[in-house]
């Protein structure tokens, strides 16, 4: 019994740590004005690429801006973009997945073929075209990042619905006269939650990475907005000479991704009904 409790505690410690780190990020984003001495966009060209010092705890970037302030202010944009991107693809994807999995074969095939079309689009092409057409704002970036995540959620949801819809409890719910929406949201969705959360956490991490990839191609957020992916990408030229400029925003990004994963893992253990017994 005691060993078992210990195991449970260890299982949750990752999730708790993840949650704590994530909360710290959120707090940092909210308290950005109070936490920073320098303006994130204030540049002092004559003091660019300085190593960490008392005045600039994490050094300055290629335009002489305080890297710490930019990381802190950047957390707002990066977190917002991450949430919006995941929400965009998650909500649309799951809804389409439920629709596809639970309605008749005709709708199902229509949804899945639409997803196929979306999937066969090389994501980079979609991103370039969308950002070029809509302009380099946050909304177009969110759409560009989110849109190619949709099919993944749809396919995952539908795959699980397919294996769930024949199960006894869904059929029982149907037999008891539950309406389709009730079946979908009351019975099927909660049972899909585990893998969806795993998917969600993974996607939220890659979203920020995708932004850094887009910045690499010159399609990131508009300057001078502070955003981690853009900071990393802009500083890569100095990676071998002034590594601090790329290292600290990189660490901020990596720690967030790791925390998200630990949290998602713990939540999964907790949420998945089959793990609760």
């Amino acid at each position: 019994m005691k060993a078992n409790r210990l195991r449970t505690a260890r299982r949750h410690i990752g999730a708790v740590l993840g949650a704590v780190v994530l909360l710290m990020y959120v707090a940092t984003a909210l308290l950005a004005p109070a936490l920073t001495v320098h303006q994130p966009n204030a540049q002092n060209l004559m003091r660019n690429l300085e190593p960490p010092s008392r005045e600039y705890p994490l050094g300055t970037d290629e335009l002489g801006r305080d890297i710490l302030s930019r990381i802190i202010w950047g957390s707002r944009i990066s977190l917002l973009m991450m949430l919006a991107g995941v929400a965009f693809s998650g909500i649309i994807g799951v809804l389409l997945g439920l629709l596809g999995g639970l309605s008749g074969p005709r709708v199902e095939s229509l949804v899945m073929r639409a997803m196929d079309v979306l999937m066969v689009f090389p994501p980079i092409l979609l991103a370039i075209v969308l950002v070029t057409a809509l302009g380099r704002g946050l909304p177009s970036l969110v759409v560009a990042i989110g849109i190619h995540g949709i099919p993944q959620f749809t396919r995952l949801t539908r795959a699980m619905v397919m294996s769930l819809r024949e199960t006894a409890f869904v059929e029982a719910a149907r037999a008891a006269g539950a309406r389709p929406l009730e079946v979908a949201f009351g019975h099927v969705l909660p049972n899909c939650a585990g893998p969806l959360i795993v998917q969600g956490t993974l996607v939220s991490g890659t979203v920020v990475l995708t932004v850094s990839g887009l910045s690499f191609l010159g399609l990131g957020v508009q300057p001078p907005t502070a955003e981690w992916g853009t900071m990393i990408s802009a500083a890569r030229l100095h990676m071998y000479t002034y590594p601090h400029a790329v290292m600290y925003p990189g660490l901020a990004l990596m720690l967030l991704v790791i925390a998200l994963n630990a949290l998602g893992d713990g939540l999964r253990d907790f949420l998945d009904p089959r793990f609760r017994r």
Partner: peptide
């Protein structure tokens, strides 16, 4: 192994 694996995802590809 999971930490190492996650480090793998967390690193920007060009980096």
């Amino acid at each position: 192994s999971m930490v190492v694996a996650v480090l793998g995802i967390a690193t920007p590809p060009f980096f």
